[in-house]
């Protein structure tokens, strides 16, 4: 990896540079927290944030998108073009970068690659930014506290400088044009290590690491714990909406008012929604909240490792805030930690 250093006061020039050439997306302050949004004024960009309400997922998988247009009369497709803009998403934290890497496994490096996702991914630069964890952050437990891949460039703040790792030539050329990047010195690297250690030390130590979670989830599949969570769940699917790695969707047809033409639409869906596993004839394979909530966590923390070798939670903590019923991975980790301790006879 190539490393360069810039001064923090060069940041606005860099942002302006990206703004000139791309649709520019960055965190801004909103009523209830921070959100990723299209920004055209560099002073609106807020880089000192812990987390945003929703993740950059929406720029790759819009909550609703048209897959194709058709004539219902002829029962034939008439249009499958989709507009995609070259974009920069600026100030993305490691958990969200790793979440995109997880989505790549499902949408890109998959048996049937998804052209809509891939085109957006190919035309979007990801500019990563270091952060300090808040009380609900536990990315460190899943190894997603560092973005080892998936960003075009990653900026680690060290004092009044940024040390930047460069992955793509496209991001690098913008940096070259709008800033005055220097080679990293030994002093910079020392600062880098110091910053990393400082972050590591700042994680909430009450959130346990459960090494054997996969086995535990299989063993306690029928535990009362899931009934308790199920009873609390409101099936609102807020957890899935804010989650940067939840990728499930629905496909449905919507006719134009004239009834002649229509769109085939893909929209976000969630395994916490009651009809998710319902089939014609009325059988529901996950017919209650207990089964649905359990499935969500099973898939996040265990199931996805069985198919893709990674956990599907990146520890961003968004659902911890979003779920009004207090159902979240931290609770689940704590439960299994307790169960483990009980078995150990502590």
């Amino acid at each position: 990896m190539l490393y360069r250093v810039i001064d923090t006061d060069e940041l606005s020039s860099l942002i302006r540079g990206f703004m000139d050439d791309y649709e520019f997306i960055a965190p801004v302050k909103a009523d209830r927290g921070y959100v990723f949004e299209v920004v055209d004024d560099p002073s609106k960009v807020e880089l000192d944030y812990v987390t945003t309400i929703t993740s950059p997922k929406k720029y790759f998988l819009p909550s609703e998108e048209v897959l194709m247009r058709y004539s219902a009369e002829e029962n034939e497709i008439t249009d499958y073009s989709v507009d995609i803009k070259p974009r920069v998403i600026f100030g993305v934290h490691p958990c969200d970068i790793n979440a995109l890497n997880r989505l790549d496994l499902v949408y890109k490096d998959a048996p049937y690659p998804d052209p809509y996702y891939i085109k957006r991914r190919e035309n979007t630069l990801i500019i990563g930014m270091s952060c300090m964890p808040g009380p609900n952050c536990f990315c460190n437990l899943f190894g997603t506290d560092e973005a080892r891949m998936g960003a075009d460039m990653f900026m680690q703040k060290i004092g009044d400088k940024y040390i930047i790792s460069l992955s793509s030539v496209e991001a690098s050329s913008t940096l070259e044009r709008y800033c005055n990047p220097q080679r990293a010195t030994d002093e910079d690297r020392k600062e880098f290590r110091r910053a990393t250690r400082e972050r590591e030390a700042a994680f909430n130590k009450d959130i346990p690491h459960v090494q054997e979670i996969a086995m535990m989830m299989d063993v306690f599949h029928r535990d009362e714990f899931w009934t308790e969570l199920g009873n609390r769940c409101q099936s609102c699917s807020a957890c899935a909406s804010v989650c940067p790695t939840c990728f499930c969707f629905d496909i449905f047809d919507r006719l134009d008012p004239d009834g002649k033409n229509g769109s085939r639409i893909r929209s976000w869906d969630a395994c916490t929604s009651p009809e998710f596993a319902l089939v014609a004839g009325g059988h529901n394979f996950r017919g209650d909240n207990r089964r649905r909530v359990r499935h969500r966590f099973y898939h996040k923390l265990n199931g996805f490792t069985g198919s893709h070798d990674y956990q599907l939670c990146v520890g961003c903590g968004r659902c911890v805030t979003a779920c009004k019923a207090n159902i979240n991975p931290i609770e689940v980790l704590k439960f299994f930690d307790r169960k483990g301790a009980e078995q150990d006879g502590e």
Partner: peptide, 15 residues
């Protein structure tokens, strides 16, 4: 490094 300025946002077509 040589600059590769991209044109202002344009519309691409997925397919």
């Amino acid at each position: 490094m040589e600059s590769r300025k991209r044109t202002a946002p344009t519309t691409l077509s997925v397919m």
